[in-house]
Amino acid sequence: MNSLKKGLSLGVLGVTIFALTLPMTRLAVGTPDAPLMSGMFIAFGRAVVAGVLSGLLLWWGKAPLPPRDTWGPLVLVALGVVFGFPLFTSIAMRHVEAVHASVMVGVLPLATAVVGAFLNRQRPSTAFWVCALAGTALVVAFAILRSGHNDLSLQMADVLLLLAMACAAVGYGHGGRLSQRMRAEYVICWALVIALPINLPLAVWQFPEHNLPASAWAAFAYVSVFSMWLGFFAWYKGLALGGTVRVSQVQLLQPFLGMLFAVPILGERLDAVTVGFGVAVIATVFIGRRMPVQTVVKGAPA
């Protein structure tokens, strides 16, 4: 199996794990009428659990300290996928259904490709950028349509989800690049360990004060161990082997997988409008990933 095929296979595995994140987060936070865990506890708490596991793995594997020039990118990984994405999505998911949020995730593959192209000195074609803008426009149009407002405004939850996608793209892009120099699992582990001194007191501060159903704790366990930790092992290794711009496009599966998981887990329903927008967004991603990407040679004219 060549590097690209192996990278794509690992990417699909990572995306499948990530596709359960929004339904599980919704299961843990509850709804406005029946709130469970706070979004802040889930965001900080899941990072603490994964951070402790990361510290144990780094100790067991006698992992060397990352080179000095990787600490800056590791901080950006932490800001993107340890702080930003979990916090924004966890707060948003109490106010939107997982099926709705899954459509918003559709813009993530192109966002990740844009970050990857910038970091790896690649120049996507004009057609690629057209697809990226079209996909973003579709996601925003869907959010406005579902907002229930007549003034073309977005719900705050949708704004938070879009911010989460931007954070994830930054974290994925830098993490994929670091995985070309470090073991893929160590990238997310070091990012989590770096963030642990901040996340631990915040998680303790937000710890639930009332009894919660076992389903909420099971969902929290999933996003802590799988979404925040193991999924990145496969994802970053896939990005490193196959290239961020190309492998990131397997995320086109994530919206549909997220919708499908939300039905049995949460009892949500799919309607024609949601599926239609999801198909349209993924179509722009599919077309975009087939557009040429040129590597910029250092010293060549822009």
Rank of each mutant, 00 (worst) to 15 (best):
L192Y: 08
H210Y: 13
L200I: 09
C189E: 15
W205F: 11
N211S: 14
I194A: 12
N211W: 14
A191E: 01
L196T: 05
R181S: 06
C189Y: 02
F207H: 03
W205L: 10
R183I: 08
Y186A: 12
I194V: 15
E185N: 08
A184D: 07
W205K: 02
R183H: 09
P208G: 11
P197I: 06
P197H: 08
Q206H: 15
L202I: 07
R181E: 09
Y186D: 12
E185V: 08
W190N: 04
P201Y: 00
L202G: 00
E209D: 14
L192C: 13
L202N: 10
V187Y: 13
P197L: 08
E185M: 12
P208S: 09
R181W: 01
N199P: 02
L200H: 05
V187F: 12
A203N: 06
I198V: 14
F207L: 10
R181F: 06
A203D: 08
A191L: 03
P208I: 04
L202D: 02
N199M: 14
L200M: 09
I188P: 06
P197N: 09
A195D: 04
A191D: 14
P208N: 11
A184S: 15
E185C: 05
H210M: 05
L192F: 13
E185Q: 12
Y186R: 12
Y186G: 02
I188W: 12
R183Y: 04
H210R: 14
W190V: 05
W190D: 14
A191K: 01
I198K: 05
F207R: 04
R183P: 03
L192R: 11
A195N: 07
C189L: 06
L192E: 05
F207P: 07
N211K: 13
I198W: 04
Q180Y: 00
A195V: 03
Q206Y: 10
I188S: 05
A195H: 03
L202T: 01
V193H: 11
A195G: 03
N211T: 15
E185R: 06
I198E: 00
V193D: 09
E209F: 00
M182L: 15
Q206C: 04
V187R: 12
E185L: 13
P197W: 02
E209L: 06
V193K: 08
I198H: 02
A203V: 01
F207S: 06
A203S: 08
Q206R: 11
M182K: 03
V187K: 07
A203L: 05
P201Q: 10
L200S: 07
